[in-house]
Design a protein around this nucleic acid. Structure first.
Lengths: 195, 195
DNA sequence: TCCGTTTTTGACTGATCAGTCCATAATTGA
DNA sequence: TCAATTATGGACTGATCAGTCAAAAACGGA
């Protein structure tokens, strides 16, 4: 019994994610946002609260989606080592203009560090899910014999996670797809059992 | 034959570096800067051009200093593998409030990506110096037998560099010193020759 | 048809932004 | 002592910032 919203909230959120992703929080103006989202100013504040709330929702949504992709790539292959490789290689899109955006989550670390508790929380949850699943696959790989059983699975997982961040920074810095794909594969090979 | 400057330009630049380091470029106002630098507004513009020029100079100076530290840590130990370990471990300060700043260079990647050609140039030069020196030490380690001679030295160097970025992102995200030190050492061990 | 509710639109707010202007002060060389 | 030059301090600029307000518009239910 009220006037219905004219725009697609999800589509608007996606547009906002893309703006924040490319420009960061501080360098994005509300004018940038309403333009990209194709909605009026008041609709913006009605539907999303304010700039910061929208940013939190953007990071949250981005991260939920990204985490899903990571877990898929990690889990799909039968071989755990291949899963790790796909996880890392899958971070790096072939498309230049996509790859050079890097990762919104990593960007939010750079921009806010530990200053925003809500972002820290969000991050920790997303990371810990991936970290746990990586460690599981590492143990699986160790019992299959393809991953060095002398390694601590949790530490391998942590190192893989660090490598993910590093790759995304390199992508944002402009590194090429081939180079980064090779590097990702090389990184994973460091865990393979020496015959 | 003119009035001499009253403030220490280097000290003011150092103060500016610290502000940019903590807050990033966009979130730092010129008011923040003149406050932290302890100088007047006009002196600021006289001595440093404008906000962007000061930022470039800040990143440049920060990076020159950081690169010097990296090369020292990498080169000082007799053992190349120890050099690599010191390089990575040395990235992570014990002091919490320092460690959680991460790296200004990495932050500038996050904030500007490939959009600013001058920053891209600066970065590439700094990185390539370190990369070259890492590869040299890797080859040295290979001929000494402590680093797996089957590995491509350039690729090891690239992976070490990625690991540096990853560690700095993790530090900025709030990871603990002990955890990161252990991780740094663990990462380097992946290159050791298996007996 | 009309009422209550929500969305939309566009003008508007005070605050802050980066950067400039100008008058005054401090210095050196003549 | 004075002229030329540069530094300083503080007021000032127009632009842009995030966010608000109020009126009109669009819907469902009565």
């Amino acid at each position: 019994m009220a006037r219905p919203r004219e725009f697609d909230r999800d589509a608007a959120l996606t547009a906002a994610i893309n703006v924040f992703w490319a420009k960061g929080f501080a360098a994005t103006s509300t004018e940038d946002l309403v333009q990209a989202m194709g909605i009026g100013r008041q609709s913006f504040y009605n539907a999303f609260g304010d700039k910061r709330q929208l940013y939190l929702e953007a990071v949250q949504t981005y991260q939920r989606n990204a985490t899903g992709c990571h877990l898929n790539r990690l889990t799909t292959p039968a071989s755990p080592l291949t899963g790790l490789r796909d996880l890392l290689v899958g971070l790096i899109p072939d498309d230049d203009s996509l790859r050079c955006l890097g990762c919104l989550g990593t960007a939010s670390v750079g921009e806010f560090g530990t200053t925003d508790p809500e972002l820290v929380d969000m991050r920790e949850k997303a990371v810990s899910v991936v970290l746990t699943r990586i460690a599981e696959r590492v143990r699986e790989g160790q019992s299959l014999g393809e991953i060095d059983p002398g390694l601590d699975a949790a530490q391998v997982a942590a190192l893989v996670q660090i490598t993910m961040s590093g790759l995304q920074v390199a992508a944002r810095a402009g590194a090429g797809a081939n180079e980064l794909h090779a590097l990702a594969a090389f990184a994973v090979e460091r865990f393979r059992t020496k015959e």
